[in-house]
């Protein structure tokens, strides 16, 4: 009897281990854990609560913007207009707020409208004109950049409302920043929508086989339109929240977010070809990206070195995932 029990346990541990290595969504958390332990060993005190809270706060913006990226990539597309959407939202937000709480709602609504417009253009181009997402969003992103350069004449004005600043500040709830709570809410919503609603199921369907999705009664055109819409609106919200962090606006505040969000999604185990993965892994992906940047800064590796190492690490992870898939 005891023999059989032992056998059973071995099997289940082995199965668990197998699941971990096969499921990129699980593996990314293992990688995150290893990374954090490594950081703690090399730089004692790295894992103290206040520092972890700081990392999460930094990761929040990337994490939120990555929701939209995650949706577009799951449908088999990509959104390369996220970076400039974030910057433009940041500029509009700061300019309309002018550092006053009473302007916040107005600024927020304006930013949402901007997101809706960008999303509509992206969605319409991809859906109706059948322009590949890569080209469409890249083009729209560039146009947005042109527009905000004209709008600001190269010198953005305005600054964050005190309330927004407090949300994004060091500690709204104990040591946790308000923005982290925001991210948590967004993350829970994203995971639930993807896992538990027909909308989520349809996203996976479209991503894995658009024709079969259409034959199954899914309105694939609308699905594709809607994810670009969501992506732009979410990026706009991220850009708005970012004003609270930066205080004022500047012209390249969002520039790095295209690569950051794509990296977070891919590191998080979502297949770049679409249809596989999910947001849970992306959360870890965003934290990994932040920790890498942060830790390499702490051990005083210059910006150029950090970028090289980040690039190499992303490539390594993608390599590991694709090897897993082949088995």
């Amino acid at each position: 009897m005891s023999n059989r029990q032992n056998g059973g346990r071995t099997v289940s541990t082995a199965a668990l281990l197998k699941q971990c290595t096969e499921n990129a969504q699980v593996m990314v958390y293992v990688i995150l854990l290893v990374l954090l332990l490594l950081a703690q060993i090399l730089s004692p005190g790295y894992l103290k609560p206040s520092h972890v809270a700081g990392i999460l706060r930094l990761a929040s913006f990337m994490g939120i913007a990555a929701i939209g990226q995650n949706l577009t990539i799951l449908t088999g597309g990509i959104d390369l207009s996220i970076a400039n959407t974030i910057t433009f939202a940041n500029i509009i937000g700061a300019q309309l707020m002018m550092g006053r709480d009473e302007n916040m709602l107005k600024a927020f609504l304006a930013v949402i409208v901007m997101g809706l417009v960008i999303g509509t253009v992206n969605g319409a181009g991809i859906r109706f004109l059948k322009i590949p997402p890569f080209i469409m969003t890249l083009g729209v992103g560039t146009v947005v950049q042109g527009i905000f350069l004209i709008y600001t004449k190269g010198a953005p004005k305005g600054n964050a409302a005190p309330f927004l600043r407090s949300i994004c500040g060091q500690s709204m709830f104990g040591i946790i920043s308000g923005i982290v709570i925001f991210w948590l809410i967004f993350a829970v919503a994203a995971v639930i929508i993807l896992k538990k609603t027909p909308y989520g199921r349809k996203i996976y369907s479209v991503g894995i086989n658009e024709q079969a999705a259409r034959f199954s009664g899914i309105h694939t055109g609308w699905m594709i339109f809607s994810v670009y819409m969501l992506s732009a609106v979410i990026a706009a919200i991220a850009g708005f929240l970012l004003v609270g962090y930066t205080g004022t606006s500047f012209l390249d505040v969002g520039t790095s977010y295209n690569t950051k969000t794509i990296a977070a999604v891919i590191i998080g185990g979502t297949a770049i070809s679409g249809g596989k993965g999910g947001y849970l892994g992306t959360v870890a992906g965003a934290v990994i990206m932040t920790v890498l940047d942060d830790f390499l800064t702490i051990v005083s590796i210059p910006e150029a070195g950090r970028q090289i190492m980040q690039g190499v690490i992303i490539l390594m992870l993608v390599l590991i995932y694709s090897r897993e898939k082949k088995k």
């Binding site: 609603t197 027909p198 199921r201 369907s205 199954s216």
Partner: peptide, 30 residues
């Protein structure tokens, strides 16, 4: 190419055209 999403689960494929029939509020009744 038309009938199945080959890389998705049996569950997903069987359910995908009739999800609305098994809802609990806005969520799929697992």
């Amino acid at each position: 190419n038309q009938g199945l999403m080959l890389e998705l689960s049996n569950r997903h494929n069987l359910a995908v055209s009739s999800m609305k029939k098994r809802m609990k509020g806005p969520f799929i009744d697992k």
